[in-house]
Amino acid sequence: MARLVASPIRCSGCRLCELICSFWHEDEFNPSRARIRIEINRSIGPGTLPDAVDVPHVCEQCNPAPCEQICPEGAIVRDSVTHALLVKDNQCVGCGLCVEECPYHMIHLNQEKETAQKCDLCGGQPLCVSFCPRDALCLEES
């Protein structure tokens, strides 16, 4: 098993991970198409501090995985090497059930391809991890 682990304490909210993710997977710099998401909490009034200011959200590669289980087409499968859950584009019909089922909101519909998209751990060497300037992301093997 391998999965991304994020540290909200270390994250400084630069969102380079989102940029590099969208560039790698979608050939453009576009955070709205990234498979990782940084929540930026600044809606803070006088006297109140949020628990965490910048919070990375990553796919947990759950086991068992709700997305894998709900998919009626069997289009979400676990990679035998990286153990990442992958979307088979040729099998996915874009029904969106997995999007609704994911407890972490980490699956989205790709507007162009009309298929689901999620973190695939970049084939085992996630670019978000190697680019994170704060070492706020790591790949945990277990």
């Binding site: 400084s12 909210g13 630069c14 969102r15 380079l16 940029l19 501090l49 200011v53 910048d54 300037p133 704060r134």
Partner: peptide
């Protein structure tokens, strides 16, 4: 200071959120 804050796409969080 309670948080080091980056601008977008910046590896050097010179921004300091303060309380």
């Amino acid at each position: 200071v309670f948080h080091d804050e980056s601008c977008f796409s910046c590896p050097l969080p010179c921004g300091k959120l303060s309380l």
